[in-house]
Nucleic acid binder design. Sequence first.
DNA 1: TATTGTTATACTCTATAACTATA
DNA 2: TATAGTTATAGAGTATAACAATA
Lengths: 168, 168
Amino acid sequence: MSSHSVHPATGTRKRRPGKSPSRHTEADEAISLDTLAGHAGYAVRRFQLWIFQDFIRTLAAVDIKPTQFSVMTVIGANPGLSQMAVAKRLGIERARLVHLLDSLERRKLVKRVQSAVDRRSHALHLTASGEASLRKFKQLAAEHERHVADKIGKANREQLLRILSCFA
Amino acid sequence: MSSHSVHPATGTRKRRPGKSPSRHTEADEAISLDTLAGHAGYAVRRFQLWIFQDFIRTLAAVDIKPTQFSVMTVIGANPGLSQMAVAKRLGIERARLVHLLDSLERRKLVKRVQSAVDRRSHALHLTASGEASLRKFKQLAAEHERHVADKIGKANREQLLRILSCFA
DNA sequence: TATTGTTATACTCTATAACTATA
DNA sequence: TATAGTTATAGAGTATAACAATA
């Protein structure tokens, strides 16, 4: 290992003034990932961290997180669904969906309507303002998706969607 | 919507006896994902849930989680690293790494050695039994990786690794 | 009996802030 | 003054279990 500016014990260098602290420094690449580099799960985890951070940043002005977006999108496309149906479709625990809906209902984006057919269940709908808001959210989400394409490449993004389509 | 067995309000059907409860039922596919289907983040999140579950299941006998495996692999390949260097390389908060190492140290898999150069920092090493254990963990992780290949296809897995290599 | 929505608990993970000992 | 490791806390997210109302 030839290094005069790399600290022998820590593997880190003194921060250079112009360097962003959010991503790898040059020293990081010198640290071997060993077999980790061949594990899809590792790459997928790192990618998901990046993609969620970008989504949250891009939709920060409207204060919508990925899970909230997915819930509103599914309710918007399938009005009248029960909480169980939404939870199962999106792989969310039904106990957690309760809190997610509480928050969206407080913001008047979603409403729970007592089902006429099964009085145990609620039929979920977007409110009028929820519909309008969702249109705006989708525009911003599309912008986020362009960031993804910029990051990994347009063709690669499409390949990725194709490869992972079995998990939709 | 043509359906006689699909409940109109919930979109669910009565559970058939032979059906596994852990994955989608046929009714789920009838629920539209709308624009969600075109978002890489959604597919990636679902894929990561699956992949982590399989990793945890496959390494359950040795009680090693993905993050623990990544920490041990990096220390094994780069003995003497500081906690900061490991945390930065893997994108883990340094505060969280403290607890991860506490647990691995209690199990005598990893040891913190006082650095001779910088007395603030610890040089991280695997113990002898940690080295031996890691070899076993890597065998099981390779088995998990074969499950991934079985799930999405050998060629697709390699494409995925290539597409996401910029996040390693 | 089983299911829907709900509440509650526990454990993990993430994000901070503050403290100490060093540098 | 800045950094390494630590401790503590708060907020998500996940995993359960239990309960009331209803099927």
